[in-house]
Design a protein around this nucleic acid. Structure first.
Lengths: 260, 260
DNA sequence: GAGTGGTCTAGACCACTAG
DNA sequence: TAGTGGTCTAGACCACTCC
């Protein structure tokens, strides 16, 4: 017997759940139906639904809470799970972050960003330029580029007034949830303008982080370039072991700064 | 009924398997007993053993091969799984890597490295300093510090003659398998000596990567500091989605350079 | 107590590998 | 053909949350 296109049942269920997430049938923060309900809906056993949800949970698309239900993941809550590159102070405890909006404009896409965001040159874009200040110290200077059509109503005021990560704003106000990201890191010398914003001499070494963020179905919906002053902060990463250790209370080691 | 120390059966099984891995009962590359054998040994059902192995597999400690068995993971094979920070050329295809040993000595631990490796100041250490050259271009200058007691027979010749990643040498010759790592990244200016090795002017921006690697039971066994010339290469990271996608042939997106 | 996710079992069958 | 991992089921029971 040949079955060249064999796909396990639970993967098909997962795809269906993913489609419901993508379409917004269940919104961020809401509970999805119980495992038994879903099993009945799809006419499979609870175990099969369970395995599908296991994978969604491992990918941080949903969050299980024993006794309560399974919820669509959100960027609002304190998130140990969704791990973009994170910044931590070299010494001591984290300080408050302040976000200064430096620029906001709508422009037409150039070739590079168009390609990264799967758009055509000349398509409308939103550009946000801002400075992140930690305890009075300017640490990150970044530009964020978004597809203009997806963020039609986005205004400078909305960005300024919003408390919390941009990703939270994107998902609550525009229904676009970032699900995955790819980053490229380089060390660069500060140019005159960046140096000024970050209060360092021109030529000072900075960490340049290029990030493409994706929503469901691997659709790219954000391009970022950040310049990090790493004199008193480091970006940290942890490899090789998964974060959530189900039960077993072996003290958290992956303490994270909030995603920026 | 209270059960404050509740631990699922499969977690207990996992701990037993972990202990067998740690003790070397099954060596890297070897097959571990079949799921049915293990179920019989531990007097639990196959499903319970399976769930324990699921987690070990998710942590890249073992590798499953349908129809063949489950094998202790290894640093030798082409590894898509074990993902330390990876370096990729900005343009085009990867080139051959050449490793030049610059220094090798046995010294006593200072305070900083002693603390990182959970040793006492004055304990014996091995220090390896080397240069990684990609297609004729020196790109990484790094120092590796190891507990001297764990690597008693390690010689400069062994390092020089070994083909492949150091981690491969460590595991095949010294039975120490790196299982997890934590990294801190900074942008720094090249000092005179480093600049010379990397063929850049002094003050040139470099990416500094500090890494602590751990073996089983979270025991730290390596401290590294690397300086990366990122002019023509980037270090890449990918967040938010798990790598191995079981079946579903949706083209690999996490192409990796070899771990260094 | 009712409902949810979490664990565990026993057994059947499928897909893959190898002798 | 035998042995391995991979899928799926049905059902029982446990742990947690909320009313």
């Amino acid at each position: 017997m040949r079955s060249p296109t064999f796909s396990p049942l639970y993967q098909q269920i997962k795809a269906l759940l993913l489609e419901s997430l993508r379409s917004g049938e269940w919104r961020p923060g809401e509970a999805i139906p119980s495992e038994l309900d879903l099993a009945a809906r799809f006419k499979v056993s609870q175990g099969t639904v369970r395995k599908a949800i296991d994978e969604l949970s491992a990918e941080n698309l949903v969050v299980r809470r024993q006794g309560k239900g399974t919820f669509v993941a959100t960027h609002g809550e304190r998130q140990v799970r969704f791990r973009f590159l994170r910044l931590a102070p070299d010494s001591g405890e984290p300080v408050l972050v302040e976000r200064q909006l430096l620029d906001f404009k709508r422009v037409r896409a150039g070739a590079e960003i168009a390609r990264a965001l799967d758009l055509k040159s000349g398509d409308p874009l939103v550009m946000i330029k801002r400075l992140l200040v930690f305890g009075g110290d300017p640490v990150v200077l970044e530009e964020v580029w978004l597809p203009g059509n997806l963020f039609k109503g986005l205004t400078p005021a909305a960005v300024t007034e919003h408390k919390g990560a941009l990703y939270n704003l994107f998902e609550t106000q525009f229904g676009t949830r970032m699900v995955r990201a790819e980053e490229k890191l380089k060390a660069v010398a500060a140019d005159a303008a960046s140096a000024g914003s970050l209060a360092v001499p021109a030529g000072h070494p900075l960490l340049a982080v290029e990030r493409v963020s994706f929503t469901y179905s691997d659709r790219p919906v954000e391009w970022r370039r950040g310049l990090y002053k790493t004199d008193r902060h480091s970006t940290g990463a942890s490899w090789g072991e998964l974060v959530p250790r189900s039960n077993l209370s072996l003290g958290q080691r992956n303490q994270c700064a909030p995603a920026l």
